Lab assay of single mutants.
Amino acid sequence: EPLWIRPDAPSRCTWQLGRPASESPHHHTAPAKSPKILPDILKKIGDTPMVRINKIGKKFGLKCELLAKCEFFNAGGSVKDRISLRMIEDAERDGTLKPGDTIIEPTSGNTGIGLALAAAVRGYRCIIVMPEKMSSEKVDVLRALGAEIVRTPTNARFDSPESHVGVAWRLKNEIPNSHILDQYRNASNPLAHYDTTADEILQQCDGKLDMLVASVGTGGTITGIARKLKEKCPGCRIIGVDPEGSILAEPEELNQTEQTTYEVEGIGYDFIPTVLDRTVVDKWFKSNDEEAFTFARMLIAQEGLLCGGSAGSTVAVAVKAAQELQEGQRCVVILPDSVRNYMTKFLSDRWMLQKGFLKEEDLTEKKPWWWHLRVQELGLSAPLTVLPTITCGHTIEILREKGFDQAPVVDEAGVILGMVTLGNMLSSLLAGKVQPSDQVGKVIYKQFKQIRLTDTLGRLSHILEMDHFALVVHEQIQYHSTGKSSQRQMVFGVVTAIDLLNFVAAQERDQK
Rank of each mutant, 00 (worst) to 15 (best):
D362E: 13
V491E: 09
G268A: 02
A497S: 13
S310T: 08
E360H: 03
D289Q: 00
S348N: 15
K449V: 05
Q354V: 04
F295D: 02
L306D: 03
N424E: 09
Y269G: 01
G240E: 05
V339C: 06
V409I: 13
I247F: 07
Q259S: 04
E465C: 09
L422E: 13
V443L: 09
I396D: 12
E263D: 15
Q435M: 15
G483C: 14
S437P: 05
I267L: 05
Y342A: 01
H474Q: 12
K359S: 15
W284D: 00
L501V: 12
G312D: 03
E253T: 09
I444D: 12
H474R: 04
T391N: 15
V241F: 07
R278G: 07
P243S: 07
P383Y: 07
R374W: 09
V472P: 06
L500I: 12
T314K: 11
C331L: 09
L358E: 10
T257G: 10
V275A: 11
Q406R: 05
R488L: 12
L306C: 04
T421M: 14
D337C: 03
N255R: 06
L429V: 13
E365R: 15
L353I: 14
H468D: 08
V375M: 12
I463E: 08
L464P: 07
K433W: 02
T344L: 05
Q406L: 04
E377A: 10
H462K: 13
C307R: 02
T279A: 12
I247D: 09
S246R: 01
L380N: 03
K367W: 15
Q323E: 12
A407V: 15
W351Y: 05
I416L: 15
V443R: 09
G393T: 12
R459Y: 10
R278Q: 05
T454C: 13
S287T: 12
L384S: 13
L299E: 04
A497F: 01
K359G: 06
V281C: 09
E401G: 14
Q256R: 15
I300E: 02
K449A: 15
E252Y: 14
L353C: 14
G441E: 12
V317Y: 08
G309R: 00
Q447F: 09
H462I: 13
E303L: 08
M425N: 07
Q511Y: 11
H474G: 11
P368T: 04
F469Q: 14
Q256Y: 12
A506T: 14
K433C: 15
G483Q: 14
L254R: 10
E401D: 15
S481N: 12
M490L: 14
R330Q: 12
G240F: 03
V415P: 02
C307T: 09
D467V: 08
L453A: 07
F285A: 13
T260Q: 13
G432H: 12
P336N: 04
E508I: 10
E327T: 12
L378I: 02
L464V: 14
Y269W: 00
S338K: 06
A321K: 04
G414C: 12
E258R: 12
A407H: 03
V339Q: 06
E324V: 15
N502E: 13
L460V: 15
K359W: 09
K484A: 03
Q489K: 11
N341W: 00
L501G: 02
G268R: 00
E361M: 07
V472H: 06
V495E: 04
P243W: 01
Y342D: 01
I451T: 07
A316K: 13
A470L: 15
H474D: 11
M343V: 09
R330L: 02
H480Y: 12
P368Y: 12
G493S: 14
L305K: 04
W351H: 06
G240A: 08
G240V: 09
W371H: 09
D349K: 08
G312A: 00
A321P: 11
D337K: 04
V375Y: 05
A296T: 11
T391V: 12
I267K: 00
L363W: 10
G403M: 08
A470Y: 01
N424Y: 08
E475L: 14
V504N: 15
E361R: 12
R459Q: 14
F492P: 11
G356Q: 09
N341V: 00
G356F: 02
I334D: 00
Q447W: 12
Q439R: 10
V443D: 09
L299F: 03
V281S: 07
V409C: 12
N341Y: 01
P273Y: 06
C331S: 02
L399W: 07
M298W: 12
I272P: 05
R488C: 04
A316V: 06
E265K: 04
Y445G: 03
L373Y: 15
L417T: 12
S428A: 14
I498L: 13
T364K: 11
M352A: 03
K367L: 15
D349I: 04
L276Y: 03
E252D: 15
G266R: 01
A316S: 04
Q435I: 15
L429D: 13
H468I: 14
G432K: 13
K449H: 02
V275C: 08
V472K: 03
C331K: 00
D337S: 04
L457T: 05
Q439N: 15
Y262T: 08
K402T: 15
K286E: 06
L501H: 05
L417E: 06
V443G: 14
E365Y: 09
N288L: 14
G493F: 13
T279R: 15
C392T: 15
V280W: 10
E401S: 10
T385W: 05
E258F: 15
K345W: 00
Q376T: 12
E291A: 12
I239P: 05
G266D: 02
Q406C: 08
D438W: 09
A292M: 03
R488A: 13
Q450T: 10
L426T: 10
V375W: 05
A318G: 15
L380P: 12
I451D: 06
V415M: 06
L460Y: 08
E475K: 13
E252G: 11
L373H: 09
P408F: 05
A249E: 06
I238G: 00
E291T: 09
Y269N: 01
E508R: 13
N341E: 03
N341H: 02
I463A: 03
I396H: 11
Q507C: 14
K366F: 07
D242L: 01
V504D: 10
E263F: 08
S348W: 05
T274C: 00
G418N: 07
K366N: 13
E263T: 05
F357A: 00
V332N: 01
G441N: 15
E412K: 15
K402P: 12
F346Q: 03
E263S: 06
Q376C: 12
G458H: 07
A316R: 13
E465W: 01
L429A: 02
D411L: 09
Q259W: 07
L501Y: 13
D242I: 00
V319A: 15
D242R: 03
T389V: 15
T454M: 14
G441T: 02
V275M: 11
Q406G: 13
G414F: 15
G423T: 06
Q507N: 15
R509P: 12
S338V: 04
Q256G: 15
E327H: 07
D499F: 02
L426E: 09
G423M: 02
H468T: 09
D499M: 00
K449L: 13
G432F: 09
E263K: 15
V491K: 08
I451H: 08
R488I: 12
V319Y: 08
A413I: 11
G379D: 14
H394R: 14
Q439H: 14
A413V: 15
V491Q: 09
L399Y: 14
M419C: 13
F469Y: 14
G483W: 13
V440P: 07
Q476T: 11
L471Q: 07
H372Q: 13
E303R: 05
Q478P: 14
R350K: 14
K512P: 09
Q447L: 14
D499G: 01
I396N: 13
D499K: 05
G403P: 08
G423A: 07
G393P: 10
Q302G: 06
I444W: 14
I463D: 08
A296M: 04
P436N: 01
E401A: 12
V386P: 06
S481D: 09
L429W: 08
M490A: 15
R350M: 13
D337W: 03
A318V: 02
G308H: 01
L373D: 11
M343H: 05
Q302A: 03
N255Q: 06
G356C: 06
T496L: 07
R374P: 10
V440F: 06
I444K: 03
C307L: 03
L276A: 03
D277L: 05
L299Q: 05
D411R: 14
L305T: 00
